Amino acid sequence: MVKVAESPENKSSSTVQEMQLPFEKMGLRIGDPLHLEGVDHGGRYHVKLIGYAPGQGLIVSMPVVDGKQVLLKKDRPFTVRSMARTSVFAFNSFIKHVAMQPFPHLFLEYPKELIAVEVRNASRLKVELPSMVTSDFDAGTGEWPKEAVITDISKSGAGVKSVESLGALGDEIKLQFLVSVSGISKTFKISAVIRNKTLLDPGELPYKYTYGLQYLGLSDAAKIVLTGYIYELQAQDY
């Protein structure tokens, strides 16, 4: 059973729609990243899908941290997150078997229930996230870092307001801010390019500028964390 929740911009009178949809219909491909979040005593690990047997289990790679494989224990429970097509999804599972031959891998319990939420690139959610902004380029805007506030966020970009100028159209900047996914806080760093810049009205003081940013080169791990964060923001409306 998969619960498919519509995004806020597409909500009907029923915000959560249950429908029969096997895990294999989610559109995951071999090699796609999965994000494991420890249920018992924390821990976050990035793995890749190796294969699955419908109704039986998933085979994923052994997590690697700082270039070393992390040996996880059998029966340890996890929340598994990933994304496929335009949806981010999550399900509870546990490690049924740990194998080192013929290559290191984990065998996970097949999901009995999976929650999927559609997250469209254009869907921007209102937030108020303090951030620090830096740049590798001399844009003639003074010293770095600078303080800013993220006012909306999506899978592909963000809106930001600031007191000081962060640059001009086409300039590349780096954002650093704190997000919380499943109760775990993580410092998030994103490179972005300025796509639009607007001078705010005096009524918006102390902020003088607002920017539309497009992300650059998000890693698979960053995409999963970001979509997980957006999923939880959307879930607050259900």
Rank of each mutant, 00 (worst) to 15 (best):
I194R: 00
G203M: 04
L213K: 02
A148M: 05
G140H: 07
E172V: 12
G159D: 04
V181E: 07
S156G: 11
G142D: 06
E128W: 15
S123R: 05
T198S: 09
I194K: 00
V181G: 05
I173G: 12
L213C: 02
S154A: 08
E143S: 13
K174R: 14
D201P: 00
P206K: 01
K186T: 04
E172Q: 09
V98I: 11
L166F: 07
S180F: 05
A168F: 14
T187I: 10
D171W: 04
F137W: 13
T210A: 10
T210G: 05
L114H: 12
I150H: 12
H105Q: 14
L175H: 12
E113I: 11
D201W: 04
G212K: 00
V179C: 03
N196H: 03
S165K: 03
D201Q: 06
K223I: 03
K186Q: 09
L108A: 10
L114A: 12
I173P: 13
G170D: 05
A116C: 14
K146V: 01
S191W: 10
L125R: 08
P145N: 05
I115F: 15
F188E: 02
V117S: 13
V160C: 08
S185H: 07
L199E: 15
A99G: 12
T198L: 11
L200M: 04
F188N: 01
P206D: 03
I224Q: 06
S191F: 10
L175Y: 10
L175V: 03
A158T: 07
W144S: 04
K146I: 00
E172R: 05
P145Q: 05
Q214L: 02
V133E: 14
E204W: 06
S154C: 04
A116W: 13
D201E: 04
S135N: 05
Y209T: 00
I194W: 10
L129H: 09
I150R: 10
